[in-house]
């Protein structure tokens, strides 16, 4: 196990290192001087010089890079220039809201995906299987911003049972917070749930066609036990890899869903930082998102190996 992690680590670190270089370079390629744009049109040269000084823009590029990475490693991200406050505070607030949304969406993905998979593979009535197929095809084909608007139209405008957007902290008012959470999480989860459902359906169908299932049926094992204890676990490993990849997609997709539902997460922060040219925040955010993505993939590999003993860690 430890060997496996160690073997995987270098390439993950390499990707992170190159990504950090790319992000660092991207923000140095931005046309115009960030200090001038941060200072505003009316600022005098002293103000611009002061901002350059604070941003460390007069240092050499390698020392700027090292300063940035050093700050990241020690947790001192420095102040945000345009939005105000500390970069680290802004990011941790946004991260909280995004994680909340992504975690809720992940629960939906697992629940809906398993339901789609099991129903699609084993439902006795043809129309149930057809409905599941239509639902997964639709959820996959239609972009989230369309599903998002449709969900708002249905649940907030027509039925008036859920709020159309906004955010309430889970800590202050859990019951209200859940109402605000439902629509965005569902919107974010649907495409991934459809992918997972299709994979599980194929996996379960393949597992149910195996010889050992026939043997077990002949030996009198109950079909339900056969499904949940034998077919489903065998369909899981590829589904878990998929779930890992989908977690990355969820984080990326959260950026969009946050914009539709006015959810104050990292996506909204990124949008705000970009439009107000708060480059230090943009830089930290991009690297954070890539890091999360890489870590999720690493975890996926490990869970995959744990679920499928045929994969050796050595």
């Amino acid at each position: 196990m430890r060997g496996h992690v160690l073997r995987r680590l270098p390439s993950a670190l390499l990707i992170l290192f190159v990504a950090s270089l790319v992000i660092f370079a991207v923000l140095r390629l931005v046309p115009g001087d960030p200090a001038t744009s941060l200072a505003g049109p009316d600022a005098g040269p002293e103000t611009v010089a002061a901002i350059r000084e604070r941003l460390g823009l007069d240092d050499s590029l390698p020392s700027q890079y090292l300063h940035w990475i050093g700050g990241l490693l020690t947790g001192d991200l420095g102040p945000s220039y345009a939005i105000g406050g500390q970069s680290a505070d802004l990011i941790s607030d946004g991260l909280g809201a995004t994680v909340e949304l992504t975690a809720a969406a992940l629960l939906f993905v697992i629940a809906l995906g398993t339901a789609f998979g099991v129903l699609g593979a084993t439902a006795r009535r043809g129309w149930v299987r057809a409905a599941v197929r239509a639902l997964t095809t639709g959820a996959l084909a239609v972009p989230p911003f369309v599903t998002g608007v449709l969900l708002v139209l249905l649940f907030a405008v027509l039925l008036k049972v859920l709020p159309p957007g906004g955010h309430v902290s889970l800590l202050t008012a859990p019951d209200l917070a859940v109402q605000y959470l439902l629509l965005p999480a569902l919107c974010l989860a649907l495409p991934s749930a459809a992918v997972l459902g299709r994979y599980l359906k194929d996996g379960i169908e393949r597992a149910l066609a195996e010889d050992y299932v026939r043997t077990a049926t002949a030996a009198g094992v109950h079909p339900r036990r056969l499904l949940w204890r034998h077919a489903l676990p065998n369909a899981l490993p590829p589904a878990v890899t998929l779930l890992g990849m989908q977690t990355g997609h969820l984080l990326g997709g959260a950026v969009l869903v946050e914009a539709i539902f006015a959810w104050p997460g990292l996506g909204q922060l990124a949008e705000q930082a970009l439009t107000r040219r708060d480059y230090p925040v943009v830089q930290d955010l991009l690297l954070l998102l890539v890091t999360v993505f890489v870590v999720v993939q690493l975890i996926t590999d490990l869970v995959y190996a744990w679920l499928d003993p045929r994969i050796r860690w050595e």
Partner: peptide, 16 residues
């Protein structure tokens, strides 16, 4: 490694 929309934000940061 860059989720699609993060890529979008990064490219727009450069080009406007």
């Amino acid at each position: 490694a860059f989720p699609g929309l993060i890529l979008a934000l990064a490219v727009t940061a450069i080009l406007g």
